[in-house]
Amino acid sequence: MAQRASDAPVISATGLHRSFGDIKAVRGIDIEVAAGECFGFLGPNGAGKSTTIKMLCTLLRPTAGSAQVAGHDVVTERDEVRRHIGLVFQETTLDDYLTARQNLLFHADIYGLARSAATPRIAALLEMVGLADRRDHQVLTFSGGMKRRLEIARGLLHSPRVLFLDEPTIGLDPESRAGLWRYVDALREQEHITVFLTTHYMDEAERCDRIAIVNKGVIGALDSPAALKASVGHDRVTVHSEDDTALAGQVRERYGVEVIDEAESFVVLTPDGERFVPKLFEFGVPVLSVKVSRPSLDDVFLKFAGSRMAEADEGPAASKRLRVMAMMGGQRR
């Protein structure tokens, strides 16, 4: 493989915009992702994540701005970009009625891979994702985790330089998720690929080299997980009292600290949480519980996106699939 100058970014976007009618889904996104990096793209539902990914994957034209992926323009050199990217979407895009191998062979054909090279690579990939013994089984007999592994194998079949993973583990149990990441890491190491990931799981975000937090179509924060946590800089004091609204208001007023209201509590952000706790009892409102915690990525997310990571998604995809399956009565035409 021809090696490009190593410091040239594999993904770069400048002033990326996309509107749907009056709705401005993406309002000026700038990103640079270096070769071999694992880049996390986080944000609540409707923040513009999927729209941005679709533009980077050539599935959607930007309204304004431009982007290059693997050295090619996503609008003018669409096919060239497609040759160098692998995609795993939230929704599965496998043919359930074909076997695992037939799905991969379809991919090899439609990407125009030489059969002599594709056949051993298919065998090796199936081996790596632990599906070699199931290769001739129809995909509809697979569990959710197995399907995802097959999709990752397929996404990497044509030796892409960038792998886009759009919530790759949504709906999987913790064990399958952990397994999936083991496979992805092993594959990444062998092929030196760049990963562009969206997720709502904090532990997955922690794996990234850098993270961008998107909200309302713009990037609110972009840095390494450690730097982002440091930038929040404050401990979290989570307080539950007899009257959260009143207490939160008084604390905010007297100490000028940042206070975030939550459903059954409120959170005070302060540099030294333990020392702040006694102050909560000065107001005469009975305090029921107090918890002090160091900043996590979730807090970073809360600060820049205004909600918690886990709250942000249940995925319309899951419910749509269920509806389709129910409509077909489990059978497909």
């Binding site: 599935l59 497609r82 040759r83 995609l87 496998l94 991919h107 439609i110 749509k320 389709v324 497909r332």
Partner: peptide, 17 residues
């Protein structure tokens, strides 16, 4: 349309063809 609803159409649409 089934291909679209069940996702496989996307596998075809993102291919370099």
């Amino acid at each position: 349309v089934w291909d679209r609803e069940l996702g496989f159409l996307r596998e075809m649409l993102v291919a370099p063809v």
